[in-house]
């Protein structure tokens, strides 16, 4: 069997991995010059399903809790399992209470326990939440690593590929083009996310820290070598343009509130990506015109791509063997006319 995958972001690469380990002949056509050219490149890389439950349905916890193990197996050495620390400035402790009420699988920490986890935050926060089962990875290293691993497994990559890349001779075509499919995949929209990278030798963090604030919730993920990724805004827009002054100011303000030493940090990068999202902000795959469309990973690319990729691979396998059966999965393709996301506001139309 030969499968063509369009797109070498986190969706395309994870689907390729799931197929390649089964010995399937996989080709990836990517329009950019290198892998991870879309939203994946600007991701936080947090494998934090329990924290995400604050604004996401239970499905995200169920499908995301295996992500750290998947990445560990696919790319040994990349996953850092040190949990997530959630704090808020003293006057916003109501936000912490609210966050705790929406989530589970955490411990309440006092200032001494926060100090034990992150000594640089000593005396800065009186209360916090610790999600000890969560993990994180560096998305760019993971994308590059997975690309190398797949190439070594015999997956063929075509970078700078045209949209009309020839499909002759392929048994399945899988579209993993993310936000580039906005306008062609029904219901798909963009949610802009802006981020920046700070560099300072004066702060050490060993795990992602989320700072709750009623207007500007933010996370800081340590990337090693004194680098910190600070993100991310959530704006309903397909705009990929540079970060706005307001967003830059708010992200920097929040970083400064977490630790004043960030005031002296160097801003070594700013960026903006567009998260491909369906109306319920959950990913899915569907089949029409003989193309398997995998999309809608929203802000959960590294978290939910493994589970989604496994389902896509199972779908391809079951469609290639007669009488194959498999358990139903949440990403089961359904007839286009019934798909809720085709017409999310349908009932009032």
């Amino acid at each position: 069997m030969r499968v063509l995958i369009r797109g070498a972001g986190v969706a395309g690469l994870t689907v390729a991995h799931e197929l390649a380990i089964l010995g399937i002949d996989v080709t990836i056509a990517e329009s950019a010059a290198q892998p991870g050219g879309g939203a994946s490149w600007f991701a936080g890389g947090m494998l934090a399903p329990w924290c995400e439950r604050e604004s996401a349905p239970e499905t995200v916890v169920r499908l995301g809790q295996g992500a750290a193990d998947w990445w560990d197996a696919a790319l040994p050495g990349h996953v850092v399992r040190r949990g997530t620390l959630v704090v808020s400035p003293p006057r916003d402790t109501a936000e912490l209470t609210r966050f705790a009420a929406r989530t589970s699988t955490f411990d309440w920490l006092d200032s001494e326990e926060i100090e034990l986890l992150e000594s640089d935050l000593t005396g800065r926060f009186r209360k916090g939440l610790f999600f000890r089962n969560e993990a994180h990875l560096d998305p760019r290293r993971a994308i590059t690593g997975l690309y190398g691993r797949l190439a070594a497994m015999g997956v063929i990559f075509h970078f700078g590929a045209a949209p009309d890349f020839p499909v002759d001779g392929f048994d399945h075509i899988v579209d993993c083009t993310g936000a580039s499919a906005i306008g062609t995949s029904a219901g798909l929209r963009g949610v802009r996310g802006e981020m920046l990278v700070l560099e300072t030798p004066d702060v050490t963090l060993s795990r992602p820290v989320r700072l709750l604030h009623p207007r500007i919730p933010l996370y800081i993920v340590p990337r090693g070598d004194g680098r910190f990724m600070v993100g991310a805004t959530m704006i309903e827009s397909n705009d990929r343009g540079p970060i706005s002054a307001r967003s830059l100011m708010e992200l920097l303000n929040a970083a400064y509130a977490l630790h004043p030493a960030f005031g002296e940090a160097r801003v070594i990068e700013t960026g903006a990506g567009v998260r491909p999202s369906y109306p319920d902000n959950l990913p899915r795959f569907s089949t029409d015109d003989g193309i398997i469309r995998v999309n809608g990973l929203y802000r959960h690319g590294f978290l939910l791509a493994p589970s989604l990729a496994q389902d896509v691979a199972a779908h391809i396998l079951s469609n290639s063997k007669t009488n194959a059966t498999r358990p139903a999965t949440p990403f089961d393709p359904v007839p286009a006319v019934n798909r809720r996301y085709e017409d999310p506001m349908g009932a009032s139309r």
């Binding site: 704006i235 309903e236 017409d343």
Partner: peptide, 22 residues
Amino acid sequence: RRETAGSRTGGAFFELIRTLGV
């Protein structure tokens, strides 16, 4: 403003709003 970063490209979100029928 808030939903569009000052640009007019919040199209998909506005389209969803329009379909609410209110």
